[in-house]
C-alpha cells in the first residue's frame, strides 16, 4: 500500500521557546487508522495542526498525497487542505448557525466567494449536505442551531462537515475527550466506518487505550515531542504504557 503522509525531521519551536516537536519522522499508509497517544503537552495537537499548516512548522518536510505541504501557498495550500478534514475536541462549530449551514461550510474549499454566499440556492450542495447529515443520523436536526445540540450530536455534525470536504485524510484532535464514554464510542464508530467503508486515512489522538485497541490499526506514541513507540495496538503492554505515560500511570478501563 502506498504511503499518503510522509514526515521527515519535523520540528516546531513556538515563539515562547517551547520545543514542541523534536524531529518527527513518520510515514502513514493509505487506509490506516493511526492513533496518537501521549500526555497532554507531548506534541499531539501540534503534530496534527502542522499537517494542514494550521500551525507553521519550524523545519522539516511534509508530503501529503505526493504534494509538498510546506512549499504550498495560497490556492495550492487551500487545495491541499480540502483533502484533509479535521475534527476537534471542542467540535468548533459555529454555534448560532444551523447544522445544515455548518455542514455546508465543509464545501468552502471548493467554492468561490460568491458561490459560498449563496449556498442555500445551490440545490446540489444542499442535497449532499443533507445526505451527510443523514449518514450521521441527524437529518431531522438540519435546521436546528448547533448550540442546542448535545456534545455527541455536535461532534457528529462536525463529522458531516468533514465528509462534505470529500477528504482522503481525517485528522481528529481528541475527538471524544469532551464526551461521555457511551457517546465517545458512537463517535469513534463513525470514524471507524469512514476508515473501513470509505477508505479514508484517519489520524486520531486519544487518551483511552481501550478505544485505541478497538479502532486503531496502528499506534504512534509521543513523549516530549519525540516518537517513543510505533506499532500495533496489541503491542502496548503494561511496560510500554508506563514508558509513554510515566511510571505513576494506571490504565483506566472505560466500559
Amino acid at each position: 500500500m502506498k504511503s499518503i503522509i510522509e514526515l521527515k525531521n519535523l520540528h516546531k519551536v513556538y515563539a515562547t521557546g517551547t520545543h514542541a516537536l523534536k524531529g518527527i519522522d513518520l510515514e502513514v499508509k493509505e487506509g490506516e487508522f493511526c492513533i496518537l497517544l501521549g500526555l497532554s503537552g507531548s506534541g499531539k495537537s501540534t503534530l496534527l495542526r502542522c499537517l494542514n499548516r494550521l500551525i507553521e512548522p519550524t523545519s522539516g518536510e511534509i508530503h501529503i498525497d505526493g504534494e509538498d505541504v510546506i512549499a504550498a501557498k495560497g490556492q495550492k495550500l487551500r487545495f491541499i487542505r480540502r483533502k484533509i478534514a479535521m475534527i476537534f475536541q471542542q467540535f468548533n462549530l459555529i454555534k448560532n448557525l444551523s447544522s445544515l449551514t455548518n455542514v455546508l461550510t465543509g464545501k468552502l474549499g471548493y467554492s468561490t466567494l460568491i458561490h459560498s454566499l449563496t449556498f442555500p440556492q445551490h440545490k446540489n450542495d444542499v442535497k449532499i449536505a443533507l445526505e451527510n447529515l443523514r449518514r450521521v443520523g441527524l437529518k431531522e436536526f438540519a435546521n436546528k442551531k448547533t448550540r442546542n445540540l448535545s456534545g455527541g450530536q455536535q461532534q457528529r455534525v462536525a463529522i458531516a462537515r468533514a465528509l462534505m470536504q470529500d477528504p482522503k485524510i481525517i485528522l481528529a484532535d481528541e475527538p471524544v475527550a469532551s464526551l461521555d464514554p457511551a457517546t465517545a464510542d458512537s463517535v469513534m464508530r463513525y470514524l471507524g466506518e469512514l476508515n473501513k467503508k470509505d477508505n479514508m486515512t484517519v489520524i486520531c489522538s486519544l487518551h483511552f487505550l481501550s478505544l485505541a485497541r478497538k479502532y486503531g490499526t496502528r499506534v504512534v506514541a509521543l513523549k516530549d515531542g519525540k516518537i517513543v513507540f510505533d506499532g500495533t495496538p496489541e503491542e502496548i503492554d503494561e511496560k510500554k504504557f508506563k514508558e509513554i505515560y510515566g511510571e505513576d500511570a494506571e490504565e483506566v478501563e472505560i466500559r
Partner: peptide
C-alpha cells in the same frame, strides 16, 4: 478561535 481554525482547515480563503 475554534471555529476560525475549523473553517481554515476546510480550505476556505481568508475572506471566507
Amino acid at each position: 478561535p475554534g471555529p476560525v481554525e475549523a473553517i481554515k482547515a476546510t480550505g476556505a480563503s481568508t475572506l471566507q
